[in-house]
């Protein structure tokens, strides 16, 4: 119980620090925000720009707790409704590529971990190194060129109307693939999983189980759940960062695209809101990871 309250307290504290960091980057830098965007006094008042900085931070943070990030400085839309509108496709993209990369990485990683010196294992290592060095946007180009040049089937418009498998799948498959492979997410997963499998494979309890003749996969499974969840959480930030680029290449209207546009137009309230939401997502994953560790591993309970 004490461990759980400590973990939750850490989560809350780090969210406060993140919000403080974002706020101070935007507001402690020189330049008058209200003058930059020609804001009317009413808008400036709604964004608390006429208060002193500490008061401004406290009011902004209090609003953020109620999922209200103020209004856009460019067109006056509510940031929270923007995020609610652009968020769902992005979530689908993120989790889709997460599952895709796990589906690829777990079999390959386990194979490489069990047989590191075999030809296929060596080939996997080489592929991992090469994949880790391809930036998302270059990979996106290669994929688009291949698909447009050879197959000519990619659906470029977002599907509307009731959910149907084909257009939706066709629209999401390429961004999901690019996000999963680019920036080395799959490579990182394979490398980590194979290392972990190597470690477990050499452990005494596996040797004992092997000697007993019991089923090995259950032991492997039990010891792999926590490390795999761990690496997923660590890579969450990389995945969300890749979103900006992937959504720009595929003209995919989601949070990454929104943050790119907000940066271009210097729309401070939008980019602050998006960054805070992303940080919250990552922190929530870390929280679940920590709680899972406490639940599965009794040694963590003190």
């Amino acid at each position: 119980m004490r461990a759980i309250s400590k973990i939750v307290g850490f989560f809350a504290g780090s969210m406060v620090l993140v919000s403080l960091l974002i706020f101070s980057i935007v507001h402690l830098t020189p330049g008058d925000i209200a003058a930059m965007h020609n804001l009317s006094p009413a808008t400036a008042h709604a964004l608390y720009l006429d208060r002193s900085l500490p008061v401004q931070y406290l009011l902004w943070f209090k609003d953020c707790l109620r999922f209200d990030f103020g209004i856009s400085m460019v067109n006056g839309n509510k940031v929270s409704s923007l995020i609610a509108e652009y968020g769902p496709p992005t979530l689908l993209l993120t989790f889709g590529s997460l599952f895709f990369s796990l589906a690829i990485a777990i079999p390959l990683g386990v194979y490489r971990g069990l047989r590191p010196a075999s030809p296929l294992g060596k080939f996997i290592s080489l592929a991992v190194y090469t994949l880790s060095s391809i930036p998302v946007f270059v990979l996106g180009y290669i994929v688009l060129a291949v698909v447009f040049g050879v197959f000519k089937f990619y659906v470029t418009a977002p599907p509307d109307g009731p959910f149907k498998f084909w257009p939706t799948f066709g629209y999401y498959s390429l961004p999901i693939f690019v996000l999963a492979v680019g920036n080395g997410t799959i490579g990182e997963f394979i490398r980590f999983i194979s290392l972990e499998v190597q470690n477990i494979n050499g452990a005494m309890y596996i040797k004992a189980a092997r000697a007993r003749g019991s089923r090995l996969w259950r032991h492997f499974f039990k010891s792999m759940v926590l490390p795999i969840f761990n690496i997923v959480v660590t890579n969450m930030a990389v995945l969300l960062g890749g979103l900006v680029v992937v959504e720009r290449i595929f003209n995919f209207h989601g949070l990454g695209w929104l943050s790119w546009e907000a940066t271009l137009k210097r729309d401070f309230s939008v980019i602050m809101g998006i960054t805070l939401v992303m940080a919250f997502l990552i922190r929530a994953f870390m929280l679940v990871n920590d709680l899972l560790a406490v639940w599965l591993d009794p040694r963590m309970r003190e």
Binding site: A237, G241, F268
Partner: peptide, 21 residues
């Protein structure tokens, strides 16, 4: 470190670019 790690690095840099150009 844990504060930095809880934000995507690219998005954090976008915030800085937005603020300072």
């Amino acid at each position: 470190n844990s504060t930095i790690l809880s934000m995507p690095r690219l998005v954090l840099i976008l915030v800085v670019i937005c603020a300072l150009e």
